[in-house]
Design a protein around this nucleic acid. Structure first.
Length: 576
RNA sequence: CGGGGCGUAGCGUAGUGGCUAGCGCGCCUGCUUUGGGAGCAGGAGACCGGGAGUUCGAAUCUCCCCGCCCCGACCA
């Protein structure tokens, strides 16, 4: 039983000055966490109980699915991360340190290497597969900018699992099992979430999905079709193209366009020269980029921006991507800034990619590759061709759902889980092989699955808090019921003690506010702030043989007679 | 890493060259109070982020450093 009289807890009346988002503010005010350094937090008893509740639920669901729990060190030697090249690849986000002999170590940001090596060390036969193992571990990432309290810390608790299979079908099955386990986990955590397709890009086109908890303070942006349920990461959104194509557009026609280096100025000129009705959508924007040192051009309708993240995600294999800069124009005198057009790309030796909206047969108004000149009726397939279509234009609310053609909305969310088919990257790098039926050595294929455990505390807080404070789903809450005793006599306290003991005997987790010196107002405020889902008040109602029972989420209050209250409450709570 | 803001007691804050650094919450003691963050009285608690400088005198001005928050880039 938790007793307010002795709990290590001091609630704060004022919001802490350094907390902006609701979960951070309330978790600090309600005495769940305290900040130690940027992105590094201590958990006080209430917070730690909550965190462990979430861990417990995750564990139960993982175990249910037949996955086995293991535990790796957080402090790891350099060597395995050298073999996969992540000692270098991970860059500055990796916390590195040395022991007294000067050997390099790191604080694990994620544990692919260790999982892979563990399996390699124990198993060598296809008969041992499939295997899924997981751990709940503190992870470290030296984020350039930790933010939003415990949503994005530098030290955080994560559940990570890995599956090991002989072939793709096995991997697909393991992936599906994890997906199902995640669904039941997040359902039990009482969270609202969407499962969205993510880009698997660099990993080789295999499947990847994110579990996103919608909430305005989230840092992920995703696309959602409210009609059919299609959900996708912005990077993974597929463009639905609806174009009508003129059978035979007129031949290309160059026209003078002095001082019109931007789309806006071009539209003004078009309306003045060729009559009203022209929009940015009639023009073709040529955005030059440097991809791994090579100049490329990407084409989007003039009323769209290029989304570099989408471009990069959809150009597999490209490591470094940036926009053309003045220095690059200086090196390519043929490319006139503000007057670029795709029709001369072969001459310039530039690879051209296009947004699907720039479909074959469409014609555009674009730069003439000559200062102060534009050209119209530039037709895809006749006057220029592209290397390939790539998802590159920014996604907007109102764009059409690729599945059902309804307008989509754009929403923000916190990423609470990510599952993806890793493939053989780590198994190859670390030489994890097993012998198959024919005695042949086969590289194992892996899946990788994560849940942000400490982040889930914040995400649940974000999704459930109200004007009075935190407001936990029952399984997550530090207790099932918060019993408040008020009054100056012993009686209400004795009665409250008795109820608390009886409820505990019935299997409920009880928080008892047995403080004799706190006023009723303080106790009520604290109970609401702490956010335990049910509150019982033993006080002035005793005179009429009644206690009060409140539901935190709805604010509903009922008076219950002393003799039947216990059973009523137990039933109410266990059925909630 | 770029831009912006902030650093005064456990928390929230006032104080822009001048006396012993002020207030609220919280904490301690006593009395009163007990259904919505109680009242009165008394008290403890601050090398004003650190260092250097200017000055008769610095929380206050200057320089450097450190830390923290927000936006962006980055990350997932």
């Amino acid at each position: 039983m938790l007793r307010m009289s002795t709990l290590l807890l001091r609630t704060l009346r004022d919001d802490p000055a350094d907390a902006e988002v609701a979960s951070h503010r309330l978790l600090v005010r309600a005495g769940y966490v305290r900040r130690i350094a940027a992105g590094i937090y201590s958990w006080l008893p209430l917070g730690y109980i909550t965190l462990r509740n979430i861990e417990r639920i995750i564990r139960e669901e993982m175990d249910n699915a037949g996955f086995q729990e293991v535990h790796f060190p957080a402090l790891l030697p350099r060597e395995p991360y050298e073999q996969t090249n992540r000692w270098n690849e991970y860059g500055a986000d990796l916390f590195r340190l040395q022991d007294r002999k000067g050997n390099d170590y790191l604080l694990g940001p994620t544990h692919e290497e260790m999982f892979t090596l563990m399996v390699k060390g124990e198993y060598s036969s296809y008969k041992d597969l499939p295997l899924s193992i997981y751990q709940i571990q503190t992870k470290f990432r030296d984020e350039t900018r930790p933010r939003s309290g415990i949503i994005r810390g530098r030290e955080f608790v994560m559940k990570d699992s890995y599956s090991f299979d002989l072939d793709d079908e096995g991997l697909a099955t393991s992936y599906e099992k994890h997906r199902n386990a995640y669904v039941s986990t997040f359902d039990r955590l009482g969270m609202k979430y969407n499962i969205v397709s993510a880009v698997s890009g660099a990993m080789g086109g295999s499947r990847s999905e994110e579990f996103l908890a919608p909430c305005p303070t989230g840092e992920d942006t995703y696309v959602l079709c409210e009609k059919c349920g299609y959900a996708a990461n912005v990077e993974a959104m597929v463009t639905k193209v609806e174009v009508t194509v003129d059978a035979a557009p007129p031949a290309m026609e160059v026209f003078d366009s002095p001082n019109t280096p931007t789309i806006d100025s071009l539209v003004d000129l078009l309306n003045a020269t060729f009559g009203p009705g022209h929009t940015g959508g009639h023009t073709l924007k040529n955005v030059l980029c440097v991809a791994d040192g090579k100049t490329i051009s990407v084409l989007v309708p003039g009323d769209r921006e290029v989304d570099l993240k989408r471009l990069q995600a959809n150009l597999p294999g490209v490591q470094e991507l940036r926009l053309f800069e003045d220095a690059d124009f200086a090196k390519h005198p043929g490319l006139v800034k503000g007057y670029i057009g795709p029709q001369d790309a072969p001459k310039f030796g530039i690879t051209v990619y296009a947004d699907p909206r720039v479909a074959v047969g469409t014609h555009w108004i674009t730069g003439a590759n000559e200062k102060d000149k534009h050209v119209r009726f530039v037709t895809h397939g006749r006057d220029f061709t592209v290397e390939k279509f790539v998802e590159v234009a920014e996604v907007r609310a109102g764009d059409l759902c690729p599945d059902c053609q309804s307008p989509v909305i754009i929403d923000r969310a916190i990423e609470i889980g990510h599952i993806f088919q890793l493939g053989r990257k780590y198994a190859e790098a670390l030489d994890l092989t097993v012998l198959d039926k024919d005695g042949k050595s086969r590289v194992v294929t892996m899946g990788s699955y994560g849940i942000g455990v400490s982040r889930a505390v914040a995400a649940i807080a974000e999704q459930t808090y109200d004007e009075f404070g935190l407001n936990w789903p029952r399984e997550v809450a530090p207790a099932d019921i918060h019993i408040v005793a008020t009054g100056k006599d012993d009686e209400p306290f004795n009665v409250a003690e008795k109820y608390a003991a009886d409820m505990e005997a019935a299997g409920l987790r009880v928080m008892l506010d047995d403080r004799r010196d706190a006023s009723p107002g303080v106790k009520f405020k604290d109970a609401e702030l702490i956010g335990i889902p049910f509150i019982m008040v033993v006080g002035k109602g005793l005179a009429d043989g009644k206690i009060e029972f409140r539901t935190r989420r709805t604010g509903e209050k009922v008076e219950l007679p002393l003799d039947s209250a216990l059973q009523t409450i137990i039933t109410e709570i266990t059925q909630s």
